[in-house]
């Protein structure tokens, strides 16, 4: 009887002992670059990502930055444990993944999808870490096109001498503009559209998703056009300070972020359809080949200068050759 009584007294504490204690997860932060700050879609995506990261053992608080450079600087200074920035800004942290945006290297969305799935797989993990930094996901942001105020400019020769709004911290862009003999007008993501729309530059390059919000049709007016040739694919990358995160976190994250591809692509396609069809300039096969050849030369030179990663260029060449084995580059194997 006394035993039963004691048991009854102890019962509440036994029950309490069986209530799972709330997990005490490491509190980490991610500096998120979004042109609209906390009101933007990238920051919102990171709010969702936070709930997924929780299951992988991290409480990852997103912090909004409208200036990408400051986001990167704060990350470098240890103000945050991870960052989400454009692939261009990811270059100092991982040459392999930042070479994904190499000019003219990705032929279409199908290839990009295959590429992202390949480099997000566990076998590719060894390429994702450079020193203390690890890439924990790559989000595509759509194709980049050349916007010209004069639609008669559609060959390489005609680009020579033209003023091009050029992202000045992006080495490949600066190299390419100089390579074609055009004139660099230093710009950034916040001011290139103003320069294009008011005629301070003749040409700008931008992702299709920028067309509507930045009203690029104002610069195109009646005589302008968009070259129907994908210069590169823009992307955003999540970079971690690897020692702050539990083992296996980055790999799980890469697989998860790669799974966002279809929904992001759907959004990009919807936005691309917003472009007035009259602006598209279809290139002849000859001109397409000329552009393709020139961009390949630029890629090889930039690889030799140490800007692009040779392994990534090779991987992309192999994927291009899978869909078009008859191309000359598949025999030449220069990348």
């Amino acid at each position: 009887m006394r035993t039963i009584f004691l048991f009854a007294l102890l019962l509440p504490s036994l029950v309490l002992a069986q209530i799972p204690q709330s997990k005490s997860l490491p509190k980490l932060s991610i500096c998120v670059f979004d042109p609209l700050g906390a009101n933007g879609s990238l920051f919102n995506t990171m709010k969702d990502y936070r709930t997924v990261a929780f299951d992988w053992g991290v409480d990852l608080e997103p912090r909004a930055y409208t200036d990408e450079k400051i986001a990167v600087d704060d990350f470098k200074a240890g103000q945050c444990d991870a960052t989400l920035v454009t692939g261009t800004r990811a270059r100092p942290f991982n040459k392999f993944t930042s070479s994904l945006a190499a000019i003219g290297a990705i032929s279409d969305e199908k290839m990009l999808r295959k590429l992202l799935a390949t480099i997000s797989s566990p076998k590719a993990a060894k390429y994702m870490r450079e020193g203390q930094y690890e890439i924990a996901g790559i989000m595509p942001a759509g194709p980049i096109y050349l916007f010209t105020r004069d639609r008669t400019i559609d060959t390489l020769e005609e680009l020579s001498g033209k003023r091009i709004a050029t992202i000045d911290y992006d080495e490949p862009s600066m190299f390419m503009v100089n390579h074609i003999g055009a004139s660099v007008v230093p710009s950034n993501s916040a001011n290139f559209s103003g320069k294009f729309n008011n005629g301070s530059v003749d040409i700008a390059y931008a992702p299709a998703v920028a067309y509507k919000p930045l009203e690029l049709y104002k610069g195109l007016e009646d005589n302008g056009g968009i070259l129907s040739f994908v210069l590169a694919y823009m992307d955003f990358q999540i970079i971690l300070r690897a020692d702050k995160f539990p083992a296996g976190f980055a790999q799980k994250s890469r697989v998860k972020v790669a799974s966002y591809f279809d929904s992001v692509n759907e959004f990009v396609e919807k936005e691309t359809k917003e472009i007035d069809p009259k602006y598209w300039i279809n290139l002849s096969d000859e001109a397409t080949q000329q552009y393709g050849g020139m961009l390949r030369d630029v890629r090889i030179k930039l690889r030799d200068q140490g800007v692009y990663d040779g392994k990534m260029l090779k991987l992309m060449r192999k994927l291009r050759c899978k869909s078009n084995p008859a191309a000359a580059e598949c025999v030449e194997k220069l990348e």
Binding site: G37, A38, G40
Partner: peptide
């Protein structure tokens, strides 16, 4: 307030 909130 909304713009300052967005600025981080």
């Amino acid at each position: 307030v909304v713009i300052a909130d967005g600025s981080g």
